[in-house]
Design a protein around this nucleic acid. Structure first.
Lengths: 225, 225
DNA sequence: TGTACATCAGTGAACGCGCGTTCACTGATGTAC
DNA sequence: TGTACATCAGTGAACGCGCGTTCACTGATGTAC
């Protein structure tokens, strides 16, 4: 039943875009609005549930795209990226819920922190495995790579520890920058900044993914063979 | 007077975050809500005016950061990036208005298209000048650079023509990817994805800017000397 | 097999609120003669 | 210099709407004896 409510809430979110109303959800379900209070103590809790589901769904999509594993780390990065994009493109409103601008009057509770890490962890694992296998080129794509200053080093070290990638600070930095670009690209695509710019969106996203693997220094299968 | 209304509207936006109400603005101005209709035909027109102002403000900040010009293209890119960030960080709600998730029930009219190009144009000009001066390394940062497929080429060519950068498709692609990363980084910072991750935000953004110039292949002053 | 009772999903009315927009109006200011 | 008039910024009441949340309730279902 709570699942059904969430389903209708998502539908509603997709139709009216971002503004979520309990009354509207109840209406769509043919119920009276107060009936929802049997399932959710208030509107924010429903939102939280949707947000957690979104992170979990995206996390699952990312994980599913990496089930094969293997040692072609660049290919894996791209596959996961594509998996993330496909999830996002097919559920733009759920994506906006978790990666869009903050919702007025709503503060994400602590419960969302852990699921939020799930999608990110999949990409981190690929980097970690590549690093462990000695298959990340130092300094990324051929260049020396921007040096990591003393200001940033401690935090990068903390992040590395948290992600358990065991990489050096510069590689962690490049991984984070690549993540930033990946979600930046999705924001651009889903929030309309590609309108009248790119129509070949999947191809453009793909190009960016390949570009990220070069940037991070992930070796492809051929390079290592 | 319309300027005063916009000022208060922005204040209100900053306080209540994203939900803009005519009545609340009028209240803040010590007026009755219907009085605003003398200045704006409806709420959406006020929003549009705010959005156009935001693009113009950001554009002006970007332009101001590049007044010096010069041939250290990498340094110019970073300066403009910093200018953009400073504007955004000091006006997060205006930034969210233009680069956040779409506002429910609001469709941006045609009038916003031209001002929207202003911030982007500043970075494009730097790339164009560097390209004209032969100071962009082919294939970006040392590597061969991901190849541009036949699928993407025509659109990249169109974009190049529109931006008047005269660059080759691969360079245009890298420029666009760098833009994506720049705004992705701001989204992460301003929409709370760096909470409990990075505290040294200016330094982290700076590192990413330098990283972008390498990626695009912009030569620094020393390299060309 | 039949009665008594507890459970509990869902109802419906009400609370107080805020919203965008309209409309006839007031009353101060400035202009014309 | 003084009166008549036009302008127009801002008022205040009202419209119809939707919202989240509460509360006492109904009435069907299932369980216990």
């Amino acid at each position: 039943m709570t699942a059904e409510i969430k389903r209708v809430a998502l539908e509603h979110l997709a139709r009216d875009g971002s503004a979520l109303s309990l009354r509207a959800v109840a209406r769509d379900m043919g119920m009276v609005s107060s009936a929802l209070y049997r399932y959710f103590p208030n509107r924010d809790e429903l939102l939280t549930a949707l947000i957690i589901d979104a992170y979990d769904g995206l996390g699952a999509a990312a994980e599913a795209a990496d089930v094969a594993g293997g040692t072609d780390y660049a290919a894996r990065w791209c596959a996961v990226g594509r998996g993330i994009r496909e999830w996002a493109v097919s559920r733009p409103h759920e994506y906006a819920l978790i990666y869009g601008s903050p919702i007025p009057g709503y503060a994400a509770p602590q419960d969302t922190v852990e699921p939020a890490g799930r999608p990110v962890a999949v990409l981190a694992r690929i980097v970690a495995e590549a690093w462990a296998a000695g298959r990340i080129r130092r300094g990324g794509s051929g260049g020396s790579g921007a040096a990591v200053s003393a200001t940033l080093e401690p935090e990068l070290q903390q992040i590395t520890d948290f992600l358990a990638t065991a990489t050096d600070p510069a590689t962690t930095a490049r991984y984070l920058a690549a993540m930033t670009q990946l979600f930046g690209a999705l924001n651009f695509e889903l929030f309309g900044r590609l309108t009248n710019v790119f129509e070949e969106r999947a191809a453009w996203f793909d190009w960016q993914l390949r570009s990220m693997t070069e940037y991070v220094g992930l070796e492809t299968e051929e390079e290592s063979a």
